[in-house]
Design a protein around this nucleic acid. Sequence first.
RNA 1: GCCCCCAUCGUCUAGUGGCCUAGGAUACCGGCUUUUCAUGCCGGCGACAGGGGUUCGAGUCCCCUUGGGGGUGCCA
Length: 514
Amino acid sequence: MWSSSRLSREPSMPSSPEPIRVRFAPSPTGYLHIGGARTILFNWLVARKAGGQMVLRIEDTDQTRHVEDSVQKILDDLRWLGLDWDEGPQAGGDLGPYFQSQRLDIYNQYLQQLLENGHAYYALETPQELERMREKAKKESGGFRYPRPNPLPTVAQGLLAKREGKPVVVRCKMPNDDITVHDSILGDITLSADQFEDFIIQKSDGFPTYHFACVIDDALMKITHVLRGQEHLMNSHKHVALQRALGFPTPHYGHMPVIFNLDGSKMSKRDKEKAVKAGLPPPEIEVHDFRRAGFLPEAILNFIALLGWSTGDDRETYTLDELMQAFSIKRIGKTNAKFDRAKLLSFNTDWATRLPLPKLLEHLKDYATINDLPMRSATDDLFIRLLQACAGFRTFTDLQKKIGFLFVDDEAIEYDPKAVKKVLAKNDGAGYSMLEQIRAKLETLTDWSGASIDALVKALCESLDTKMGNVAQPIRVAVSGSTVSPSIGETLELLGKNRTLQRIDRCLAIRSTS
RNA sequence: GCCCCCAUCGUCUAGUGGCCUAGGAUACCGGCUUUUCAUGCCGGCGACAGGGGUUCGAGUCCCCUUGGGGGUGCCA
């Protein structure tokens, strides 16, 4: 499952003294979001192309939002995508721990430093007080910016309040000068000092906020390049201020365009609940949704790589290895993109015909397993035959719809009323009569192979001077319950002679009792 | 409200002053292939948000307007 075809990697360039190190830092609040998948992809591509390292770090500083098992789920879907990491959970590394919740001592140490050198101070407002201030400011001027207390609470005062059990936070004292962030995608972004506010770096529960933990960890883990979503753009100035206060270098930043739904709304996992409530099928939002829906990781990766990045030529099909060769931060765009599932579908269809059989087999087994489908117990040989019989399929779900009848008991086949009416019952039961004729012929067939079944059907068509559909469709409906299955020879061969005849008999029997 | 970012077919995008009567992909429409569903092949429809500049010449540079997005959390 771990991408064994280790992508051909250039050995790291001996000429560059500073190896490129990137990170992906999800917070464990659920499954891996498709936008997060693109974030790690771009980071991964940068690292792998340069022979650098990929760090995976878990940002679990919000105890209230922590979701059980989500780290496991995120890692599992990352592996399924074929994206690996050199340091982090399950990979080890010298610069850990890689869970922020296990790094509290480290954060506290730097916090002391900032408190001592005056770059940070204790703030004593309660959340309720802040809320009131915010509301008041909103009414009066439309926006709230935390006013720095004058004089600042002393460290002694802060400590005392803490001991008394009051909610005390630590805030970063922002500089009085403008800050310019050099963004490799957007260019220089300058924010004037009057836009800054002294933001919280340690919460009253003793945990660091995202900004603080992120800046310290990026520095300590020697991260050189930070590619993240544009929603973080305004955070960079805070991060740069913190880096300066702490004496850390600033990594290279790049803020990527954001991915939205086709209607312009945010792609949110809540979209799924909303759709269900409206009686609609839930849309795929998280990587796991796509996995469960029968998409191929190669197609997903290829598709999301093209959301906000392109090479400039007309080529659209890339393997992960090819993406790595072609990738360049310089060619990341600035424009937000909408996620078009129809186009993903076409990529998937393409990859379904392009991927070598063993890969397809691996993915199909994964699909059958995570969906707990009856076909999951099939042998590799059978899976391969199914894949071949369904050539041209778009997703594994389409394949499942096409051959699912093979894994249902003969007595449990449900007949689609529409199919029965159209193919069997119409014209005074012409289809049933045809079925009786063909059943007799099939029974005498000794060589039960797709080719000879097809030949038999063809011969019957010719002798009756009728179209293939008039013969094949009644059989198809009789054995599968629907009008869709692989070619008729293939369908019957896969089912086997006994089951074929049994199903035809049952179909005819049901007719006479209704 | 304030601050920041963005702006080419419905969608993803190519395009960095003349190669653009704007290219590709997808979607859609039509045709062909076909024993079902798909696939595949051929053809068609379809965009430079608006207004000012700059220039011999603007999708490409500048300004304004409009539109979209983001930030303004003891979330990340």
